[in-house]
Nucleic acid binder design. Structure first.
Lengths: 344, 344
DNA sequence: GCACCCTGGGAAAGTGTTTTCCGAACGGAT
DNA sequence: ATCCGTTCGGAAAACACTTTCCCAGGGTGC
C-alpha cells in the first residue's frame, strides 16, 4: 500500500457519504449511523488504509490521548519501576505515555510541564521527590495550577505539598519501624547515609529513623550521619568518607536501596564483611536489587503499584476539591545484610 | 494568570499585528520580522502567557516533535538503560519521547507503531530483539515501511533484517570470545541457559558460544543446553531444571545478565557456591547488576550509548538508500563469578 | 389522516497554527 | 526622478478533523 496520507475526506468520498458520517463511524460519536452506511464506510476505510490524524483530532476535540510521566532518571530502577506501573495504567485506558527526564533539574521539570501543556496532555504523573527549596516548589505549583486550569490532571508520586493528588510512602514510619527492628536485633550504634540535605524524602527517612532511635534512648554522633548524592555512587562515596572518619557503628542505614548498594560495594572494597563486620539496611526494596548478596534488609515499597495508582488517580477519578493523598505503608523486610552485632 | 487557552490570534490582536506576523515572531520561520513589531509581539505573548498549541502546529506543519520508543518492558534494566540513551538524544534535539511497552507481544508492537504514525511521530526507536517468526517480522516490516513512507524515520536496537537503520551488538563474536576466555581459564564442561528458542539474540549468543567451544574441540551434551524465558525468573527456573537433571559442567553461561542473576540465585538456593562449585557468566553488563556478588563475568555492551546512537541515526542523519548497520563489539569482562575449575 | 417526535444524514462552522501569495514601502543605482 | 530589487506586513488558504445545526423521512398516537 502506498504509505500514509489517506484523509477522512477521501474515505468519505470513496464510500459516497459525508465527512460527518465518516467521522461518526470511524472515530466514535454519540450518534448512531445506519447499518448500511456504517459498513460502507468501514470497508472504504480498510481498503484505503485510513489512519486518523491524531493531531487533527486533538485540535478538534481539544483533548489528547497523551499522558505525561516525569522522572529524574529512567535508568534508575526506582523510577523505571514506577514508570512500568504508569505505562500499565495508561495503556489500560488506551492512552500513550510521554516520558520526560529531568536529570534532577527543577528548571527542566517546569519546561517539561509546559511542553506537556502545549500538547494538551490529559494528565501528568510527577515522580521523583522534591527538594525543600521553597522557590522552585512554588514555581512548580504554579505550573501545576496552569496545567489543571486547562482541564489537565496531575498526580504525584512521593511528593506532598503540591496542589495535586499524591501517592506518598510513609517514609517516617517505615524508617522508624526499620530502626526498631534493628534495635531489636541488638544494634545500638548506627551510622546513616542520609542523602542530600535538601531532599524531602531523604529527610523524612532520616528523621523517622532518628526519632525511633531517640525513642529507644539511642543518639547518634554527628559524624555518623553523612550526606551525599541519592545514587549508588553517592552511597559508595559517603561510605568511604564514613570509614575514613572512623566509626564504631554496628549498623549502617542508607536512606535508599541504591545508596545501600554503593555502601556494600565500598565496604567490600575496604575489606569489611556484611553483616559480620557491619550490618547494612536500605529503603525501597528495588526489585532488581533483590539478588544482591547478602540480600538487603530494607523497607518494601510497592513501586509499580504506586505508579499505577498515581496514573489511576489522574486518569480515572474526577478532579477533587482538595488534593487527595494516598498513603502507602512500607513493610520492613529483614534479610541477610543485617544480623545481630558481634559481641565485642 | 488565568490558566491556558491564549491563542495566537489573541496575541496578534493584543499586539496589533496580523496572525502571520505573530506566528513568524513566536514560532520561528525563515522570514524576518522588523525589530519594532517583533518586540511588541514577544511582549504581548509574555504578558498574556501564550503557549503554542502543539497539535495545531503539528497539523499545520505536518510533522511533530514526537519520537517514539518501543521496548518490551521498561522495568527491565536492559531496556531502561537503552531508554536513558534514547531520551538523552531526543532531548538534545528538543524532541519529546513517547514510551510504548509491548510486554513482548508482536501484536502490540504493531499497534504502537500505528499509533505513533497517527501522531505523525518524527522517528521511532525499536528496541527489543525479534523472534525468528517470519510472519510477525514481515508484518512489522510492513508497518515500518508505512511509517517511513510518511517521512518518518525508524531505527532499531539489536534487530537486523528490518528495513531500518540498526545498532546491533556482535552477539556471535562476543559470545565466542567469552567462550574462549572461559576455556582459557581451564573450563571444559559447560552448561548454557539459552533463553527462548525463537529469540534471535538468544540464538546468536548460543551459536557464537557453541561455535567457539567446537573450535576448541569441546562439545555439549544436549541436556546441558536448557531453554527458558529471557528474564531473571527464566534464569532461575532454567537453572533449577538443569540441576534437577544433573550436570557435570564447571561453568554456566546464561545468554544475558538478568538470566545469570536468576541462575546465581538458584545456585545459592541449591547450596552451591559461585564460582567454587560452578562458574557463572552472563552477557550485557547491565550497570545495575554490577554490584552483585560475586561480580558477574560478562560481555560488556554500551547500552546507553546504543540507545543514543539509534536515536541519533533516526534523528540526525538523512534517510539512506539501504539500511545502515552500526555494529557494536562486546568486550569480555572476567570478574569473580568465573574462576578456574576446581581440580577434581 | 394529521400532528408530532425521533432517527439519521449532510452542510458548514469551528479548532489554532503555518505558509503562500500579494502588495506596499524603501533604498540604491542610473 | 525612474526603475529595479529587497524587505517586511497582512489576507487568506490550507491542514484533517469534530460537532452543531438543519432538514427529510418514517413511524407513532389519536
Amino acid at each position: 500500500m502506498g504509505g500514509g496520507y489517506v484523509t477522512l475526506e477521501q474515505v468519505a468520498r470513496h464510500a459516497g457519504v459525508s465527512l460527518a458520517t465518516a467521522s461518526r463511524v470511524l472515530n466514535g460519536s454519540t450518534r448512531q449511523v445506519g447499518r448500511k452506511l456504517r459498513d460502507r464506510v468501514t470497508a472504504s476505510a480498510h481498503e484505503l488504509g485510513y489512519l486518523a490524524n491524531a493531531s487533527a483530532q486533538t485540535l478538534a476535540r481539544n483533548t489528547s490521548s497523551l499522558v505525561g510521566l516525569i522522572v529524574h532518571d529512567i535508568a534508575d530502577p526506582y523510577f523505571s519501576s514506577i514508570a512500568s506501573g504508569v505505562t500499565r495504567s495508561a495503556e489500560d485506558e488506551g492512552l500513550i505515555v510521554v516520558l520526560g527526564t529531568t536529570g534532577r533539574t527543577p528548571q527542566r521539570e517546569l519546561e517539561l510541564l509546559a511542553t506537556l501543556r502545549s500538547h494538551r496532555a490529559r494528565a501528568v504523573v510527577l515522580a521523583g521527590s522534591r527538594t525543600v527549596d521553597d522557590e522552585s516548589t512554588r514555581r512548580l505549583a504554579d505550573e501545576i495550577t496552569m496545567f489543571a486550569a486547562r482541564g489537565g490532571r496531575v498526580a504525584c508520586v512521593s511528593q506532598e505539598g503540591l496542589p495535586a493528588d499524591t501517592v506518598v510512602p510513609d517514609n517516617r514510619n517505615g524508617a522508624a519501624e526499620l530502626a526498631r527492628a534493628l534495635v531489636g536485633q541488638g544494634h545500638r550504634r548506627f551510622a546513616i547515609l542520609a542523602g542530600p540535605t535538601d531532599l524531602r524524602t531523604a529527610r523524612e527517612r532520616l528523621d523517622g529513623f532518628h526519632g525511633a532511635l531517640a525513642g529507644a534512648g539511642i543518639s547518634l554522633a554527628p559524624h555518623d550521619v553523612v550526606h551525599g548524592a541519592f545514587t549508588r555512587d553517592g552511597g559508595y562515596e559517603s561510605t568511604r568518607r564514613l570509614l575514613a572518619a572512623g566509626t564504631d557503628a554496628t549498623c549502617l542505614f542508607a536512606v535508599n536501596d541504591v545508596m545501600a548498594t554503593g555502601a556494600m560495594a565500598a565496604l567490600r572494597d575496604a575489606g569489611l564483611r556484611v553483616p559480620r563486620d557491619l550490618s547494612v539496611a536500605g529503603f525501597d526494596d528495588i526489585p532488581t536489587l533483590r539478588d544482591l548478596t547478602p540480600a538487603l534488609s530494607t523497607v518494601r515499597l510497592p513501586l509499580e503499584w504506586m505508579g499505577e495508582e498515581a496514573a489511576r488517580l489522574a486518569l480515572r477519578e474526577e478532579a477533587a476539591e482538595a488534593p487527595r493523598v494516598v498513603a502507602v505503608a512500607g513493610e520492613v523486610v529483614l534479610r541477610e545484610s543485617t544480623a545481630p552485632p558481634a559481641a565485642d
